[in-house]
Nucleic acid binder design. Sequence first.
RNA 1: GCCGAGGUGGCGGAAUGGUAUACGCGAUAGUCUCAAAAACUAUUAGUCGCAAGGCUGUGAGGGUUCGACUCCCUCCCUCGGCACCA
Length: 843
Amino acid sequence: MNKYIPSQIEPKWQEKWKENGVYLTDLSETKNKYYVLVELPYTSGDLHMGHWFTFTMGDILARFRVRLGFNVLFPNGFDAFGLPAENAAIKKGIHPRDWTYKNMERMRGQFETLGTSIDWTKTMVACDPKYYKWNQWIFLKMLERDLAYRGKLMSNWCPSCQTVLANENVENGKCWRCGSEVEQKEVDQWLFRITSYADRLLWSDPPQADWPKSLREGQNDWIGKSEGMEIEFSVAQDTSKLKVYTVFPETIFGVTYMVLAPEHSLVKKLVVKDREKEVEEYIRISQKKSELERKAEGREKTGVFTGAYCINSVNGKKVPIWIADYVLAGYGTGAVMGVPGSDHRDFEFARKYGLEIIRVIGKSAGDQSKVLLMDDVLEEGILVNSEQFSGLKTPEEAREKIKDWLEEKGWGKSQVQYHLHDWSISRQRYWGTPIPIIYCDPPAGGCGIVPVPEKDLPVELPYEVDYAPKGKPPLATAEDWVNTECPKCGGPAKREVETMDTFVDSAWYFFRYLDPENDAKIFDKKIAKVWMPLDIYIGGPEHTLGHALYSRFFTMVFKDLGLVSFDEYAKKRIHHGTILGPDGSRMSKSRGNVVNPDTEVKNYGADAIRLYLMFLGPFDIVTSWNPDGVNGVYHFLQRIWGLQEKLKVKSEKLKVEDLRIMHKTIKKVTEDIEQIKFNTAIAALMEWLNHLSRKDGIEAEEYKVFLLLLAPFAPHITEELWQVLKSSVVSRQSSDKKSLIADSEATPKAGEAILKTDSWSIHQQSWPKSDSKFLEEEEVSIVVQVNGKVRDILVIQKDVIRDKEVVEMKALESKKAQKFLVGKSVKKVVYVQGKIINFVVSS
RNA sequence: GCCGAGGUGGCGGAAUGGUAUACGCGAUAGUCUCAAAAACUAUUAGUCGCAAGGCUGUGAGGGUUCGACUCCCUCCCUCGGCACCA
């Protein structure tokens, strides 16, 4: 027999599958659809082990569903816009587009070697105008509905490059490109009003879709809905009002000071003359601090007194107004009331600056103990020193009562706050979707901000651009492109030179797979109605607060645009794990611990790598690549290859025990794939192989079913062996009417695998069915325990297990059990039918 | 600090209230071989014992139960995410 040499069979079948369109999906089918999706790869240049891991999972699920008779869609595309392409361009002098397309071609080839059942006729490439035209269309729709707007946002700002920097581009508070000190500055940018969807984006319990708990809770925390109160205080020196937000209105009698964020609009107005210098200095220093710097400082609070006071309406108390950068301008009103007796953070601040501390929540009614230490601070308990509200339990009784009272008096009103901010989509970068906006400015009168009319889409990204960093968006250098006519008045105007965040590209791509060539519409609603939502979406946990939130937002917007009828685009999402390098750390070139799939495929073949990755552990495992581990599954494949020799020429009826293990394995593999437990499905096949190897010869039926079950995991070797079997059958049929396959067809047994002439591939055969009548055993093992410890195992005829007395009698006959029963009195006997009998004894 | 997921042999892991360590890797011994590799066979949680067999054992400690890796409480550790949100 010939040897198992993967390189001789894998490319051959990959080619045949493609030629015969084995994996093409007919989207006009309206029944039994199953849409599998894996997060699209970024065009980084090479497929890495992580891609193999996740796409093998998707592939197994896709192949399995096809075999069950579903119409399966398993597409893929490329996330092709973004910073790395631009950086590579600057570094290597290649145009971002050329770099991207070159990488894409390479990765497409690598996907072939993996042997996936991806239908490449349904695809998208983010940097293709055919695709990003629809990003622009969505932008215009958002604009129409006031969901896109030009607004200000605090950002990292490099004064010398004149650009906004992402957090990761700020190094020690300095610009990564020029080294200038980065400032915090309000910068004009385009924003998507995701906050108006905050409530809809919240996950309920039970959840509206089967998504991971960590994602649901993470998103809910990120959205950060809180229901509190906005309370107004009068400034003592003039007529202005100071508004604060709090979720603890019941502590209002404990307010001893106020704190404003350095950026608060009232700061300039409030600060008294002789403190101006100190305050200005404080603000100057805090504004220079980047996010990272603030974090690096830890929780040590700093602040400065303005010299101003305001009045607490509830008791007429005059309290000092401070400024501190632990108060965030972007949350609530940008001002907080200081209640050091009931808030740990306020306590810390008050103690540092010697501010008054009053107890308003005590352990018991009338508790007048001093708040001297952090541990004395109470957030819940009984209200004290709170006039008519003293003695009420908080939060249960007091909060609502004080809330109502404050509202009645007109001092405060209920307010819902979110932590979620609107989504800034502006990037001062070249390699992204141009924002379809034209600025028509004076002197010619000027129409202001004018959206590009839909008929003029796409606004194509110009190729000839100086994308080297010059301190302004690269698109500004393409003067021919920038200078245009105003669509409204026809006068001279300039294009928007910012591009969109690449998260826009990935927020809706799975809709486009359904209708990738459509030039008139974003996608056909009718097709989407049939094929969406996704049945399963495999992705990384790192996208919890980015992609996975934005894509939900887009889907909800699509619903409001009448494109779809659902809020959630994926019925189920799972978070895959990570394959670390052999040294246990993340694979990276700098560490030199990268395991290259191409090399591994050369050594072992794609089937072995697929199988190894799936056998490692559960789908969400984070574990390191073990170079020896591949040997194990490679060995498994070689043993399967060797089964050909053991195949009996003349088929006989399967024995009871052979039938039992076959049906047991069918059941186990089927259930495990459904539950995405590939490791144990493979283990079950290994166990069956061990059984088959022990036999003298194997029957065609069990051989066939084995291949049929293994096919989703190892598509190449199973196709090869299937075709070899088929051709041997055909040659047999011509000479001698009886054949291996014909036998089992005449009397359809387990597996029901029938070779159809129009479905030549093993991957088109129907999935074997398990028959429970073969699973029943004549004899059952029953564990005999004494006081919960296993003492013996009883083998009993199946028809007896219902009778507790008989089982008990037999168990008492056990010599091993008897040793532990002599001289003891049996207090109780617990019998679990067919499983265990436990004697509870005392000495 | 908060939220989420975990902690089981030398290693990856299996078992979701009923025989802990399936399956695989590695290791040890043997068969084959001039030899090695490959393949095949056997053993492989710790411990006491010649053996039969016993005892201990799923991060630590407690609890519930006839019975706990599994459920509950307290604590420790690891991983992922968020983090001065008033």
